[in-house]
Nucleic acid binder design. Structure first.
Lengths: 200, 200
DNA sequence: TGTACATCAGTGAACGCGCGTTCACTGATGTAC
DNA sequence: TGTACATCAGTGAACGCGCGTTCACTGATGTAC
């Protein structure tokens, strides 16, 4: 019996799988993920429609993989950036977010769209990821009182503002983003500071 | 030459048109607006597929009408509620919003989805509407200094939080919404107050 | 080392289906005079 | 008032098209011994 496929073979398959996910992100930026067809994605990835099934059972499974793998990694990186500069965590997070928008707009479009999109499953998966990010921000900004309810809900609101700002940035020419960035940092900081001031 | 159709005939047509828009909202709540088909919507509205063209050139035109007419009316009402209780404008706005979620979840789902959805045109139309709402909130909360930049951008952030909260509410059982409502009012108020405090 | 067998990603043909759109028509209603 | 004509929402038939999915097959690669 064959117990393990060769490493090389596995890597080849992984490349095609990644190409499918990237193709889906690319096309979703134009028509939205819900409007994508399996054949359309396979075509963009350069494989036959029937080969799609070697990687995913259907488009929903591909979307789930996109959130768990691609989006999950990106969001964890965002949290790491904030934690790495605890004294300026908000600024670091905002910078990392806007850098992400510039570097991979297709992924960011997918994220902000599916966060409030048509698929309840995608919404639930993304909510989990964003809650994690909010907790990280909360810890970075205020590690000393981990149980403060208001402070955590303020961090969640701050993350909401972060994603709405990303959505705005995606629709704006790069030139106009500087003022928005300053406003965003101000608003997120104001929320987090007010929550600390409101502590018992 | 016929200059005006009779009032009765016009009203009949208006009813079918409204039925088409309502059918689209109903179906979009499940599959998303981008996933809707013209035949599907016509079927739900109880007319033949070809009759659709008597009212809209295509689905995009129907979506535009939904935003301009149905959503526009709802958002203007939200602003009116806030203006009517200027001393508690934020609370009034939040209450009106959550009442809207309970009364017409299909419309609210459409709003929060298309605000960051796949159609650039829908996003642009909704951004205009939300900017208007932010200006109304700004005027209600702080009519005395109409030129304060920070105060206006704080109002815009507050409106962002309002819509994100609506999106959350749509995915929550009604029972769990009370705590979220309190947090939302706190966060919006904190933003608006901080902006006033930060004024030169 | 050689040989027989197992695995599995990729494929092309084929299917039935629902889609968007066109077209010419119907019939109710309104207008002209 | 009666009659001839115009308007227009609604319709069913028909079209070509791309879709998701199944199936049996290929061929490269790995494994057993």
């Amino acid at each position: 019996m064959v117990l393990r496929a060769s490493l090389e073979k596995k890597e080849e398959k992984e490349k095609v799988r990644a190409a499918l996910m990237r193709a889906a992100l690319h096309l979703a930026a134009a028509h939205g993920f819900a409007g994508l067809g399996l054949r359309e994605v396979a075509r963009e990835a350069g494989i036959a429609p029937t080969s799609f099934y070697r990687h995913f059972a259907d488009m929903e499974e591909l979307g789930t993989a996109l959130i768990r793998e691609v989006a999950g990694r990106e969001l964890r990186e965002l949290g790491d950036r904030a934690m790495a500069r605890r004294e300026t965590a908000v600024g670091a997070l905002v910078e990392a977010m806007l850098a992400g928008v510039a570097k991979d707009p297709e992924l960011m479009r997918f994220l902000v769209a599916e966060r409030t999109g048509a698929s309840a499953q995608f919404r639930a998966l993304l909510r989990t990821e964003l809650t994690t990010l909010a907790r990280t921000l909360h810890a970075a900004v205020d590690g000393r009182s981990p149980g403060a309810d208001r402070s955590l809900s303020a961090a969640e609101s701050a993350v909401s503002l972060l994603f709405d700002a990303a959505a705005d940035a995606l629709d704006q020419p790069k030139a106009g983003r500087a003022a928005a960035q300053e406003s965003l940092i101000w608003a997120m900081t104001a929320l987090l500071m007010a929550a600390q001031g409101a502590k018992p």
